[in-house]
Design a protein around this nucleic acid. Structure first.
Lengths: 333, 333
DNA sequence: TATGGAAATGTAAGCGGTTAAACGATTAAC
DNA sequence: GTTAATCGTTTAACCGCTTACATTTCCATA
């Protein structure tokens, strides 16, 4: 059985308060007493019970983290950034994969609240305003990651998705392509919407028509990238170029290119959102929009810490990180 | 402020014991009383405080998970498997990235023990026997993931790494290559050692000499893959084929091939351990050893649950999952 | 009618810490 | 010489639950 504070106190011949004070350095304790306490702690190989402490001081030092899927390399980098910076502050991360499934999100939310998390980081798929109201009502420091809810109810840190999509589209236009298509993400998700918005914006600014047939809504996963690019390629009038709005769908598209023997950029030029590690060695190397991933994790972690430390009073902050275009071969460069 | 059991009880006009009993369904409570209790809970939007419960019942429903790096796609899949199956059992995962750094591991271990985790899953870099002794002494259900410690002190689930490496090497031999090199992982890690072992085993069985110059020890990261393959290619007598023992190093090697304009498999044939999602679309498509990732996560989660439920009494189990070779182009197929 | 016992609910201790308040001893101030 | 302040430590209440045990209620049986 594990030793308790009381046992340490008894062995050291002091009160529990004193032991607590030497552990937390909350009050002055004479050196000789300290020495005895440390000796007793070592003797019993004492490990303070944080759950008792949490109950008393009402902080768990736990941060809930709800993302759609850790398997997405973008998220894994973000999570890495979060975990690293929270660890430095003495906080731990409770990882929850929601698959963008709103039922799972609700379920996890309940569990996390039960665990009395000190803060919550969410990359939510939730779209309904009601859901966000519930979120806002939970009375726990909250910051949104990557995807941002329609009415701004708390901090959000994300990439400037409109700009990223704009950059991609503009680049394709610069290559001389006119018939440019897009595979969007789910339009119920802000990243899906914003990337479409940036695409349209660029097309408009350069006086190009956006044919609705050139807009296909995907699911941000490999399969939908595969099948939608296939759809594009089997149409009577094919696009000359396509902007694909996330890494998984781009991967799916590449799978199709390989299966169907399609030459990129010869038959079709491509720019993808996200710059996964394979972009450089793919065939052809992928021209990609890179978004700061690790940094996004750091920022979101800093924001949640700030909220925790200031008693969750600060005004909602919006942080948009800068995407950049990495030119390789798939666009025709 | 959040409502407590006591407040719910008062509002419902019953005792705290009764409220507790209806929540946990631990004793029969009449329907009318139940109804009142539920009404009070809803009225106060009561969320049970799990930390108080944990203190009382001495279980946190938290599982510590120490891996080197969530950013490694192999691990992210494993973690996904773990998280999914533990969630079903009502357990949550505390994610810790150790970077295979033994100091971080020790630090995290202390934190996790303080949090009174019910179980610990470790992919440890620790090598010293002393470290494992400490691990074994912690008196918390423990299972090793992927990498396994020298003296078997608890369950371990991993891929049959020897076999995987054997498969890869045999395949290269089958292509007619004689001068075959290997980029190993750190030899202080069991996966590093085992993959080298499988390599040597295949070489020996087929009567091929293993020249020590053809063994280079890498660090399981992109940079070392890059620089070691570069070393190989700048030697007077180059290998004809190389087995690279993880995904990151293979990626690094591919980066070098692209930078240096090396033709694969023309100038050098390659088989890699791990089958990342880009293997299929890389240039050239990578012949790879696939290890069950998600399943490995499931298995390890099941084992830890079993240990928790049986009071950590079971004999140490060793589970070796079967790797398989996916033939593509990089080997010469 | 008294009584025993089952059924439903209540009482209160305790899980392992923190911390405000109390305490005794010594020193300083008037 | 009395009072006050300071210092180092202790006492004990409390955080929000669970649960062994006590209590009350109610009804069947003697």
């Amino acid at each position: 059985m594990k030793a308790t504070l009381k046992e340490v106190a008894k062995l050291a011949g002091v009160s529990t308060a004193t032991v607590s004070n030497v552990i937390n350095e909350t009050k002055y304790v004479s050196d000789e007493v300290k020495k005895q306490v440390f000796a007793a702690m070592k003797e019993l190989s004492y490990v303070p019970n944080d759950v008792a402490k949490s109950l008393r001081v009402k902080e768990s030092r736990l941060i809930g983290l709800m993302i759609s899927d850790i398997t997405n390399p973008f998220f894994s980098l973000v999570v890495r950034g979060i975990e690293d910076t929270l660890a430095k502050e003495g906080y731990n991360v409770l990882l929850c994969n929601t698959d963008s499934n709103i039922d799972k999100e609700k379920e996890y939310l309940k569990v996390l609240l039960g665990k009395r998390i000190d803060g919550l980081i969410v990359s939510s798929s939730g779209d309904t305003e009601q859901f966000f109201r519930e979120m806002a009502d939970i009375d726990v420091p909250l910051v949104f990651l990557n995807r941002c809810p329609a009415p701004l109810i708390s901090d959000v840190v994300t990439t400037d998705n409109v700009k990223g999509a704009y950059l991609a589209t503009e680049h394709l236009i610069g290559h001389g392509y006119r018939r440019i298509g897009i595979i969007t993400g789910p339009l119920c998700i802000s990243t899906g919407r914003d990337r479409l918005k940036g695409f349209k914006q660029a097309m408009n600014e350069y006086g190009l028509e956006v044919d609705n047939k050139l807009i296909k809504e995907g699911l941000f996963n490999v399969q939908s990238g595969y099948s939608l690019i296939k759809d594009f390629m089997s149409e009577s009038v094919k696009p000359e170029a396509v902007f694909i709005s996330n890494n998984f769908m781009t991967l799916g598209a590449y799978h199709y290119f390989h299966d169907a023997g399609i030459s990129v950029p010869g038959d079709l030029a491509v720019v993808g959102f996200d710059d996964p590690d394979w972009a450089r060695i793919a065939n052809p190397p992928l021209t990609a929009i890179r978004q700061p991933d690790y940094e996004q994790g750091e920022r979101v972690a800093q924001l949640i810490m700030q909220r925790i430390k200031t008693g969750n009073q600060s005004e909602p902050q919006e942080i948009y990180l800068n995407p950049s275009l990495i030119a390789r071969k798939s666009c025709g460069c």
